[in-house]
């Protein structure tokens, strides 16, 4: 978006307001992506923190060639992957941290929150590569060819991982709380 280009340009010139706007605009999305990839709330927060700090440190020389959203989401993915590699797989199960959807009806809200907790739990049972494609495609808005480049695989493999991931989610969530 043109707005992002302008914000980046202002950041390069040291405009803190522009940096704050970028943070406000993308913080929730990036935290959701990080949580989806890491399943560890505190680590997800640290990843988002580190991404924004790194972005701020290089803001005066930063050149945006694609979308800012895609760039930041990719940074989150890279840092999350680093942490996963360092920490290795955790033995314990995922810890769902879900913010409630904006429902007005408390009963419906509770059902929706439970449903999303189940989704988070099911996501945690997917192989990382499948989870990554789903999160980066559906939440971060990256195209399959962009994800394929990140994962170092062909577009068809990236697409297949998405397909398998979605099918597994459908299976895992089968019979769970319906909308």
């Amino acid at each position: 978006m043109l707005e992002d280009r302008l914000l980046v340009l202002r950041c390069r010139r040291g405009n803190r307001e522009a940096m704050c706007r970028i943070y406000q605009k993308y913080k929730d999305l990036l935290l959701t992506v990080a949580t989806g990839l890491l399943h560890e709330p505190a680590e997800a927060e640290d990843v988002v923190h580190d991404v924004f700090v790194a972005f701020a440190q290089s803001a005066d020389q930063f050149q945006l060639t694609g979308s800012l959203k895609g760039y930041l989401a990719t940074c989150v993915r890279n840092l999350a992957l680093d942490r996963i590699r360092v920490n290795a797989r955790r033995a314990e199960g995922p810890k769902p941290v879900i913010s409630s959807p904006a429902a007005q009806d408390p009963e419906r809200d509770a059902v929706a929150t439970e449903e999303l907790a189940q989704l988070q739990s099911a996501m945690g049972r997917l192989p990382y590569e499948q989870r990554e494609v789903i999160v980066m495609h559906l939440k971060a808005g990256l195209r399959f060819r962009e994800i394929a480049r990140l994962q170092g695989v062909s577009i068809s493999t990236s697409h297949a991982r998405y397909r398998y991931g979605i099918d597994k989610l459908r299976s895992l969530l089968n019979g769970e709380v319906q909308k």
């Binding site: 913080k27 929730d28 935290l31 959701t32 949580t35 989806g36 997800a44 927060e45 988002v48 941290v97 879900i98 913010s99 959807p101 929706a112 449903e115 999303l116 989704l119 988070q120 789903i134 559906l138 939440k139 979605i166 989610l169 459908r170 969530l173 089968n174 769970e176 319906q178 909308k179």
Partner: peptide, 17 residues
């Protein structure tokens, strides 16, 4: 569950700072 159902769930799945 239908695929669209899963997509919608993921769409609603948001964590806020």
């Amino acid at each position: 569950r239908p695929e669209e159902d899963i997509r919608q769930m993921i769409d609603r799945w948001n964590r806020k700072t």
